[in-house]
Design a protein around this nucleic acid. Structure first.
Lengths: 135, 135
DNA sequence: TGATTATCCTATTAAATCTATAGGGTAATA
DNA sequence: TATTACCCTATAGATTTAATAGGATAATCA
């Protein structure tokens, strides 16, 4: 299942990407428009800022804004920040590789074999999708 | 993340599929060979039996065995039983469709748009994989 | 028949994760 | 200097996952 965090994060990014005027948008505004708990959204936007997707401005007229052009924002990067590893098991993860405790040999592991295919399929989708494609 | 239930279930199915002699295999044997908690595996095998993947035999010489030929066992079916819906959000699920509370219009939803592609990619993998391919 | 074997089934608990909320701090603006 | 709006940590509630406990039931074989 996709976490609410990822769902809300994607909606917020899309919302910002579809703004005509490139001015900061307040958390409250995004939360209201997208039916998201404001406080929860706050923490999500914060993490998107810390990972370089968003910029922010404090005080009156402040809010969040996209740093890059929507077509420059790859879904692989967004998903890794919001949802975590794209692979369903650590032993097939490119960026978060970890060996399984139980499995003595990855080469002969059926789970490894299947999940490798799944990872590749998902990567292909995310690598071919940008924020611009979601609008 | 893939649940342990699914991971163990897949390993057990593969273990049974790779048996030379088609005789029932005891839970304890599978648990030992695959490093799985026996009691946990017990409940997993039970659910695989109830969903028509496995047969069982009680008493001495009893155990679990595959009902179909490995190449007849589709991963789409296995995954839906073990892991649940293949889709990451209910609004793009073929077999477990549900409308989102928050989202007013699926057609214009960015999450829906992206997750539809992901679902299709995953389905393609699972539809093209059988238990025989995992050995 | 009776002892043994192994699955069947329900309930419960422990741990982890996810989602949301609370409450105040900090910086920018007018 | 008052107001606005982001910043940050802590925590609680809910849900899911993983594992365990304990016994019931059915089949086999001596």
């Amino acid at each position: 299942m996709l976490s609410k965090k990822t769902k809300y994060g994607l909606k917020a990014l899309t919302f910002l990407a579809s703004q005509k005027v490139k001015e900061p948008v307040q958390i409250a505004e995004i939360a209201k428009q997208e039916n998201i708990s404001q406080k929860f959204l706050e923490s999500i936007l914060l993490s998107l800022r810390k990972t370089g997707f968003l910029g922010s401005k404090k005080g009156k007229g402040g809010g969040y804004y996209l740093i890059k052009e929507p077509k420059e924002v790859l879904m692989t990067d967004v998903m890794r920040v919001l949802e975590g590893p794209i692979a369903m098991v650590p032993c097939v993860s490119l960026n978060f590789y970890e060996k399984c405790d139980d499995c003595p040999d990855e080469k002969s592991c059926s789970v490894n074999k299947l999940m490798l295919k799944v990872r590749d399929a998902n990567l292909a989708v995310y690598r071919n999708s940008t924020l611009a494609d979601l609008i």
